[in-house]
Amino acid sequence: MASLRTTRRDSRLLRYLILGTWALVCLVPVAWFLSIGLRPRVEIITPRPIYWPTFSLDAWHMIWEDWPMARYLRNSVAAIFGSVLIDLVLAIPAAYSLARYQYRGRDDIAFYILSTRMMAPAIVAIPIFFLFRSLGLLDTVWALMIVYAAINLSLVTWIIRSYMLDIPKELEDAARTDGASDLRILWEVIVPAIRPGIITASVIAMIFAINEFLFTLLIASTPNAYTMSVALANFTGGSDGVIYNAIALVAFLAFLPVFLVVLLIQRHLSRGLTMGAVKG
């Protein structure tokens, strides 16, 4: 009995040790970023080691006052939320169709949708640039919204579809005999029942959109459409050289909202990720 108790305690200790190490590995860069962001610029590039960092809001003031960071933030938020909204509006009916109706080529269509995700983005970069130029949408938040939505649409559709496949068919049969139309079944029965899936898909889409860089750089050429991720690039050139503390702070600010959202909904998210992975 005694030995059993020891081994159990040992294994618990081991578990904490492993998870603690893992957490440290994940968190150190974040903490480092934050510490860089909150120090004066000279201190960051000095070759001598510093034991007591100096706290400074230089970078903070700089990004808000010298740079239109509020605007970049607004662009990011608008493009990201807009794109997720577009994704949901398109993906929910598409996923429903793929999950429920029988028609020729259904599985091929489903696979095609997913396969767009496997393509290297650079391949379509140039056509997309010309497309938006002809549409007169270059350097607008609208273009970013559309591009983010397009990038994420396949994944969002796929995740939502996998959740829909898990809903017993009897539920829809019941709604049908109760007199509901297909649209009402979708809206009043299916969508509420897969809310965790919708949240999961939205968050994953948001994370991809926040981190998107290539297309944003391509489309945004002035602060008119700059987002947080592209704004980072602004701090590397110009007469001031690389402004590390501003970069670090902006990166941290871009990271924070995602981190908080994931923390809030992590229960849904982990279930959603494994479901999306196993099913389909």
Binding site: E170, D173, A174, A175, T177, D178, G179, V189, P192, A193
Partner: peptide, 29 residues
């Protein structure tokens, strides 16, 4: 179509709408 036949059915697996209360379930039809 089932919705045009005017039947009411009790399903073997209950098929209650999970997001609605019992009251809303009964009221749905």
């Amino acid at each position: 179509d089932a919705r045009d036949r005017d039947v009411a059915m009790v399903f073997q697996g209950y098929a209650l709408y999970p997001n609605m209360t019992v009251y809303e379930n009964i009221r749905f039809p």
